[in-house]
């Protein structure tokens, strides 16, 4: 049985589409979410333990802190490397690092040392070992379709900024299942 060029092409195109659809379904199926909850932690890096206990996988995290904490050194989870571990263990696939407004100028200056970076709509984009990293301020957080995890160090943000974060959640611009909060003042998000 001989197939025409058109028939062969159709088979190849169907194979390609099947590949794309299969990989999309597969990647979505690998994301693991948790029931909505807010958990108070004494240090930001304790968020890693929470994510590990809840078994989340393939997630986007909004990190409200001054430092990213992605050092690759250390054989166990620590303050300086917990985001690196979260990525390495596949709990996190992308990081939105939300900088307090009062530290933005300093961060902007430091970003100039990152060789691979983009800037658009107030957001710097780079990578952590290939994982997407977005560096931005609260006012520049875009609408995110995927449900996110939030790790907030409330000590570093003003009352106004905290209210902005609450408003983001209230308005539905972002939805979160796990909110880990550290800081002296207990906030309800």
């Amino acid at each position: 049985m001989k197939f025409s060029y058109l028939q062969k092409s159709c088979v190849i195109l169907v194979f390609f589409l099947a590949t794309v659809v299969s990989l999309s379904v597969y990647s979505s199926s690998r994301r693991i979410y948790a029931p909505p909850q807010q958990i108070n932690i004494d240090k930001p890096y304790k968020a890693y333990d929470v994510w590990e206990q809840l078994g989340v996988k393939g997630r986007v995290v909004l990190l409200f802190d001054r430092h990213l904490n992605v050092d690759q050194e250390g054989s166990s989870v620590a303050e300086s490397n917990y985001m690196h571990w979260a990525i390495a263990k596949n709990a996190v696939r992308a990081v939105y690092h939300v900088i307090p407004d009062n530290a933005w100028e300093e961060v902007k200056h430091n970003i100039q040392n990152i060789q691979v970076r983009d800037f658009s709509n107030g957001i710097y984009r780079s990578t952590i070992e290939g994982a997407p990293l977005y560096i931005l301020r609260i006012s520049d957080i875009p609408r995110l379709r995927d449900k996110v995890m939030m790790n907030i160090n409330t000590d570093l943000y003003t009352e106004h900024e905290i209210n902005e974060i609450k408003e983001l959640l209230r308005s539905g611009k972002i939805t979160a299942d796990i909110i880990t909060e550290s800081g002296k003042t207990q906030q309800r998000f």
Partner: peptide, 24 residues
């Protein structure tokens, strides 16, 4: 073009397993 692209994509199966989509 399409077959090499399909093969290339399939090789990233484990990477897609980290939860990434096509835009990523």
């Amino acid at each position: 073009l399409v077959i090499p692209a399909s093969v290339y994509l399939l090789v990233f199966y484990q990477w897609f397993g980290r939860g990434y989509g096509f835009r990523d």
